[in-house]
């Protein structure tokens, strides 16, 4: 755990010197920047001029400039994918979004005054749900003197996003078998977006545990 933490604190810039062992590209290739907004942002900094001399990898298949693209949603699709069947995963997530939208529109139709407050955009709902269920700390087992203590340690941003999405999916997969994943996932996301439901409870439980175990926090540095 600590080792992975140390590796995370490496300087991360666009020009990443560390790549996986067997990559089809040489190490000095950098990731593609396919979002027009990002490119515009870069132009204002000095990095842009450096980029004109660097070779760039090809853009991936899931990235595009289309209206349906969102990084978080893409990640979610990846986590739902099983056995390489991304088509099915995307279909499931789309159905889930549809479910969410229908529920929200129904709610909107029931109270016409709340049209401005109720969010019906499924992507927004998903983002909000993930934000609400992101943990700040997590517990690790650290062995000191033969005893394994549960020590609270901070969670990196990437990992917190991963945990939030994983919990959402786990909660969705837990319920009854007759109901399909899209509907279950839709309900989980809606609950989490409103700060209720099992995922947020799980996060709060974790935080409470960390709070109660804060006496062990110094074991991080022994």
């Amino acid at each position: 755990m600590l080792r992975s933490l140390c590796s995370r604190l490496e300087p991360q810039s666009l020009i990443c010197a560390v790549t996986r062992g067997m990559s089809a590209y040489s190490p000095h290739y950098i990731e593609a920047i396919f979002s027009k907004k990002k490119q515009l942002n870069l132009k204002e900094t000095d990095e842009y001029i450096k980029l004109s001399h660097l070779p760039i990898k090809a853009a991936k298949n899931d990235d595009s400039e289309s209206i349906f693209y969102n990084e978080l949603v893409n990640k979610m699709v990846n986590y739902i994918t099983k056995g390489g069947n991304k088509k099915l995963a995307r279909e499931l997530l789309t159905k889930s979004f549809e479910c969410m939208k229908r529920v929200q529109i129904e709610r909107m139709n029931l109270n016409p005054e709340s049209k401005d407050t109720i969010i019906a955009d499924p992507e927004q709902l998903l983002i909000k749900a993930i934000e609400n269920s992101r943990p700040l700390l997590q517990l690790t087992a650290i062995k000191r003197g033969g005893v394994k203590y549960q020590v609270p340690i901070p969670v990196t941003e990437k990992r917190s996003y991963f945990l939030a999405m994983k919990w959402l999916l786990e909660a969705a997969r837990e319920k009854e078998r007759k109901v399909h994943l899209p509907e279950k996932l839709a309900w989980e996301v809606l609950d989490a977006a409103y700060n209720q439901g099992r995922v947020v409870k799980r996060k709060n439980d974790l935080h409470r545990q960390c709070e109660s175990n804060r006496a062990y926090a110094h074991y991080r540095w022994s």
Binding site: A24, F34, Q39, L51
Partner: peptide
């Protein structure tokens, strides 16, 4: 053209199945 190159559109994807 430079923008497209930065977006990774002009690079041949040589990845093959491992």
């Amino acid at each position: 053209v430079e923008s497209m190159r930065l977006a990774g559109l002009l690079q041949r994807d040589y990845r093959r199945r491992e």
